[in-house]
């Protein structure tokens, strides 16, 4: 096939004058199409790269590893995780958004995928990528955040917290993984729904944000349940409520905000995306692979160990979920707005 193409081109090159250009073009086009069809039949025929836009050890990375392992088993083709980090994930997301849409470069991203383009819009920056450059393949997991307060603080319930916050607006502080980060957004939704104002102290990542509340430097934190559970058990932190539609399995006594009358829902989710324009047969193959992959027993046990609930959704449902989530985050970002310089 390859040698044939080469021969045709060489012939076309040497006898340019003799052969009408249209013929050359159509011959090469036909060959290209043939090659594309050939490529589709063979998908996957080489290593698939699953890009995790966050550093190793983070939620995205730890979810990407078992996903890649499960895909590898089903496709019988190597799937490697590559950490392309930087600028709160924007570097890796932009990398996949602009990658060749052939199904060999995929993205495992968290909810922040919807935040970055909105934040770019807010600051009139040239966007690193736009969301329509990526198409969803499958939602893998969704972990509701829970609200914890330092154990030495007085509030025993959301009601007490909100009442106190109304009395002293802007006094009760919370840490977050960073400004406009997921944990900031979760708290912003609460403060909007409750009509109160909290004091934001951003940190450089979820780890430092947790360290800060354990040291008592801030009063409260919205966090994924798995990392705060040991500290709840040891009595350092007190949970007040969860952002999920259902209660968290590990803390069944913990009410959800919905039960308490706040219409808010927030998850730190992880999903797999492909560049927009990936051929339909390849998309189908990848979706099928992921559908089988989440059923895989090794995958299930890996996710259990990470204490991250699997929440599989196939592309169409995931798309709906993503649109709704992105809209919610966009609204929250607009509400926070730009932090203007004080005069």
């Amino acid at each position: 096939m390859k040698s044939l193409t080469w021969k045709v081109y060489r012939k076309a090159g040497s006898a340019k004058a003799a052969i009408p250009r249209r013929l050359v073009v159509s011959v090469s086009l036909a060959l290209l199409v043939a090659q594309a069809v050939h490529g589709q039949e063979a998908f996957p025929s080489r290593t698939i790269t699953l890009v995790a836009p966050f550093p190793p050890g983070g939620v995205a990375d730890l979810t990407a590893r078992p996903v890649a392992a499960a895909m590898e088993k089903i496709l019988k083709n190597p799937v490697v995780v590559v950490n392309k980090t930087g600028a709160a994930g924007a570097v890796g997301m932009a990398y996949v958004a602009t990658a060749k849409a052939d199904g060999y470069t995929l993205l495992l991203s968290l909810s922040s995928i919807s935040i970055i383009p909105e934040a770019d819009k807010l600051f009139d920056r040239k966007p690193a990528y736009t969301m329509d450059q990526l198409v969803p393949l499958a939602l893998i997991s969704a972990d509701p955040t829970i609200l914890v307060v330092h154990a030495e603080r007085p509030w025993k319930s959301v009601k007490e917290l909100v009442e106190d916050a109304k009395k002293r607006p802007g006094q009760i502080s919370f840490s977050s993984s960073g400004i406009y980060g997921t944990l900031h957004m979760a708290t912003e939704m609460l403060s909007h729904a409750a009509g109160v104002k909290f004091k934001h102290v951003p940190y450089g990542g979820a780890g430092p944000a947790l360290t800060a509340i354990l040291g008592g430097h801030v009063d409260m934190l919205a966090s994924g349940p798995a990392v705060v559970l040991p500290h709840i058990k040891s009595g350092k932190l007190r949970p007040l409520a969860g952002w999920g539609a259902k209660r968290v399995d590990a803390v069944p006594s913990l009410p959800t905000f919905k039960e308490l009358g706040y219409e808010i829902e927030f998850y730190i989710w992880a999903g797999v995306f492909a560049p927009n324009g990936t051929p339909e047969p390849v998309m189908k193959k990848l979706r099928d692979t992921l559908r089988q992959g989440v059923q895989d027993s090794d995958f299930k046990s890996a996710m259990t160990k990470l204490q991250t609930p699997i929440a599989y959704l196939d592309a169409p449902e995931f798309k709906k979920f993503w649109d709704k989530d992105a809209k919610m985050l966009a609204d929250a970002i607009k509400r926070v707005g730009k932090i203007e310089e004080k005069k």
Binding site: G57, R65, P230, K305, Q307
Partner: peptide, 27 residues
């Protein structure tokens, strides 16, 4: 305390979590 006190300890805590150990004060 199971606190991710820096970038490197954070990666090591992740290594424990992968094995189903919740790093915390009771470690």
């Amino acid at each position: 305390l199971g606190v991710p006190s820096g970038p490197i300890p954070a990666v090591m805590l992740a290594a424990m979590m992968v094995h189903g150990i919740s790093p915390g004060p009771l470690l």
